[in-house]
Structure formats: C-alpha cells, structure tokens
Design a binder for these strands. Sequence first.
RNA 1: GGCCCGUUCGUCUAGGGGUUAGGACACGUCCCUUUCACGGAUGAAACACGGGUUCGAUUCCCGUACGGGCUACCA
Length: 520
Amino acid sequence: MLLDKLNNKKSYLCSLMEKRVRVRFAPSPTGGLHMGGVRTALFNYLFAKKHGGDFILRIEDTDQTRFVKGAEEYIIEALKWCGIEPNEGVGFGDGPHKPYRQSERKELGIYKKYADKLIASGHAYYAFDTEEELNDMRKRLEAAKVVAPQYNAVTRQNMRNSTTLGEDEVKKLLADGTKYVVRLKVPRNEEIRFNDIIRGWVTVNSAQVDDKVLLKSDGMPTYHLAHIVDDIEMEISHAVRGEEWLPSAPAHILIYRYLGLEEQMPKLAHLPLILNPDGNGKISKREARFPVFPLSWQDPRETAPYIGYKESGYYPEAFVNILALLGWNPGNNEEIFSVAELAELFSFERVHKSGAKFDPEKAKWFNQQYLRKQSDADLAKAFKPLLKEKGYEKDEAFMIDFCKLVKEKVQFVHEFWDHGKYIFEAPTSYDEKVITKKWNAQSKEVFTKVLETFKSVSDWKMQPIHDAFEALVKETGKIDMQLLRVLITGVAGGPQLFDMIALIEKEEVLKRLEAALSKL
RNA sequence: GGCCCGUUCGUCUAGGGGUUAGGACACGUCCCUUUCACGGAUGAAACACGGGUUCGAUUCCCGUACGGGCUACCA
C-alpha cells in the first residue's frame, strides 16, 4: 500500500520531468504521399497538439536512386491541404535544428560522426564486399538450405570486412579509396526487449537481426542510422511510425545502446497499417478503385495521374476524420470530429494493434456529413463553377434555392449536377419502366389538363403551382406524380417535384410537357 | 520458409471473467410521403478454432488456423 503510494508519486514526478513532446513525420520523397502516410502524420500531429508539443517535418532523402522530383513539394502541399501542418521543418520554416533534409545534414558530416563513434567502440565495422560477393554469399547460403540468408555474426566471418581482414589491410583498402559500407555489429545471440506504446513489450533475439548497413558506399547514411541520429539531435520524444518498422526496431535499440544514448531514446509507437478494402495487403495505388492520395499526384515516371481526395470532391476535414478513425477511436459512439476535437481526445492507448481495412463507402458517408454542415450559400458558391463548366449560369438566389433542394441527395458537390441536371436540361427520353407501367389511354387527356393548369399559373412559385395542381386533382381525381415527374425530367428519381418545377422556368416546363404529350 | 505483430457482425469498431455482445457504413422491412429523398423505427448480421485456468471465458493462458508486416548499400 505504502509502496504503491510511493510508486505513484514517483511516476507522477517522472511524468513531470518528462521531456517536451516533440514528434516528427519523416517521409522519403520517393513518390506522392499516400493516405497511410497522411494518417501517420496525423497521429503525430494530434499527439503533439494534445501535449502542446512540436510537430516536425523531416525529409529522409538518403536514397538518391529513388528520389522523385516534385515529391517533397507534394508532401508539403498535401499536409497543408489536410490542415495538419508541422511547426518546424522543411517547408514550414526551419527551426533550431536545421537543416531538416537528410541529404543536407549528410553534407555537414553529422552522420559520419556517429558511424565513426560506433566503429571506434567496436560496434560497427567496415565491409568491402562487392555486390557480386554479397550475391554469391546469399546463393551459397540458399544452396545450404539456410532459410533467411543474411549478413550477420556468423556469415560476416567469411566476408571481406574489418572483422576478418588484418588492420593493415583495412587501412590500405581505406587509403586506396576502396568502396566500403559501415555495418552494425549485431551480437550473435542476445535477447532484445523494448516497450512499444501501442504494442507493449516486444522481444526479439539478435540472431534474427542482420548486420544492418549504417553508411552506404556513397557516404549516405541508411534510414537506420540517419533517423536515430536525427531523432537524438532534434530531441524527438516519441518515434511514431508504421508497423512496417517493427522488425527493424531491435536493430535501432542496439544502435542507441552502442551510442550510449538509450536514456535519450524516443519512446516507440508502431501504428497499425491501413489495408485494402477487398483482397489483402496494404493499399496499393495501382489497383485501388478509390483515391489513395490526398491531392492528385502525377508521377513523373508515369503518364496518367492519380486522382486525389481533394479532386474527388472530399473536404479535407472529412478526409482527416476518416483517417483518424482508422485504427483509433475515442471510445464512444461519436464519429464526426474536427481536428481540434481529435487533438483533444487522442491517445496512443486507444490506437489499435491490428490493421484496418479501408471502406470507400463509409468514406463517402463521412464526406456527406461534412457537406450537410455547409450553408446553402457556401454550397452554391462551390457548385457555381462546376455548373458553368456544363454551360449554365444562374444568379445567386437561384443557386441557393437549387442547392437547398438537391443538397439532401448528394455526398459531393459535383453530384449536384448528377442529381439536379434535369432542372437545366430537357429530357431526351422517358423512363421506360414508369411509362409502360403508368401511361394509359387516359393519360394524354389528364396531362393535357395539367399543361393547361400550369399555363394558367401566373405567379411561378412552388406554392401557387402546387395549389393549382391540387385544385385540378380535386376536379379530375388522382394524377400520378411520378408520371408527371417523368414527363418533365425523363427519369423516375430526383429532387422534390414541385420545388423543382418552380425552379425550371415556366415556359420551359410548358415546352417539356408539350413535347412529352406529342411523343407519347 | 524464418522472425515479429495481429484476429468481435461483410467493413470500421465499443465492450470485457457472469451483457438480450452496443454503435456506425452497407443491406432488408415498415412509418412519413400521390413523386424523389431526408428523417424515424425496425430486421438480418460477429466474439476464428481447439485445449486449459475458473462455479462461469468472447474476455486470462497455451496451441492451431488464418491475416498482415519484415526478411536490400529502400524507406
């Protein structure tokens, strides 16, 4: 009991002394940022906001062979559109730890310093093996039925590196400018344990970890070295990244340890992946029948662009809301949250361990919820240019009435056209099903009367039109409204009938009715 | 193959040793409605399987199955 109290007090004090929350999103500019990446950025952002910390954008461009022009700019624009802006880093005003691009940091010799330290302490070594030699090694191991060939404590003994070569030979090779990489010297058999905020304790034996390359032969650090050096130097408190990094986390623990930085190591949080809705695996941009990028992305190596969420008509708030609820939820039945509300509610304790399949249908529903929050005037303003593209221009009052009428049927602004085009365009054909079912010998006479009645309406507004129609119904008996709808619009569905008729000009309605009567 | 991580309705999920296992999307039915919707109500729909532990397990443990990730001088 007393011990519990002491422990509580201790952990309370510890939490007070905990370092400032500083998290980073660290994509590599190898293509457009896809929705999985956005969600990783989002969770980082929410966590930073929740704790009044910093959110940093770091560009991890250490692989020069995969660098894609425009990718970095795309990442910055995408984050801006989503409203999850870093307060430090590339594109968002450099901060005290600049530069934030790893290629630039490499020029400053930042990474080499750490690699040298590891070599000096015997935890890393030079490896001179050529690509062919590495391939031969793997082939040899495969032939010997080794299931997972890797450069490790055993195989390194048969390779050309500073653990097998004499000191003089190594010196000579280095002096000659021989190409080399620096590898981490992973122990042969050692339990590595770490505590992941989301997954709890994870244990891996070092035998499963290969001697990771730290410094490539072009002098660039690999991700493994670079992100650790930068996380330390940028005082990152929590490393929040995708689940795909979980298997290499033990190697990272080792690097921190050998650098004597285990105490300053950021806490780890590995996020579950976003999976394909149908089939298996993580979302692939090629096969997806829904957008995978926040903004349209034109890959310079491909011809056709990938259409983004923005261009598909999604509100950024809806897009972010969807992403937030993939792998996390606040624990109640609510689903619609602003970014500010999400930041208030967010915690890693409520992040799932398992991957979530993305449901494009539900995504549309989310957008609909946000669309309904818009005012009719805002919707009118948003739809006006789309209508103009179709060749129609209307005044603001009309647009507002139109949006008010069609609003309940749409999930996206562009759907105002799909669901409301009948108002602008006369039918070219009439719904077969409705006609065969409902058009009969008396119809022509009845609708001729409707035509006459409409002609007599002088104040062309919904109520007078409706009143006149009702008066006619009293006189003639029931008149099928769906049939009337089809005669005017050609289709069985659509917005409220009399509101719609009022929105179409009187002359046009009469013209359409006359045309229908002559054709049927 | 090996290693790691996971598994509640079709999907996203709540819950958690004793519950009629809750909500949302999608789907069905009904109500409202002379049209079309919205809305409301309602229905069908889940604890992967097998062993433990326990008075009792969907919940804890162990296996199996299944899914995912990783297995590069890519991140």
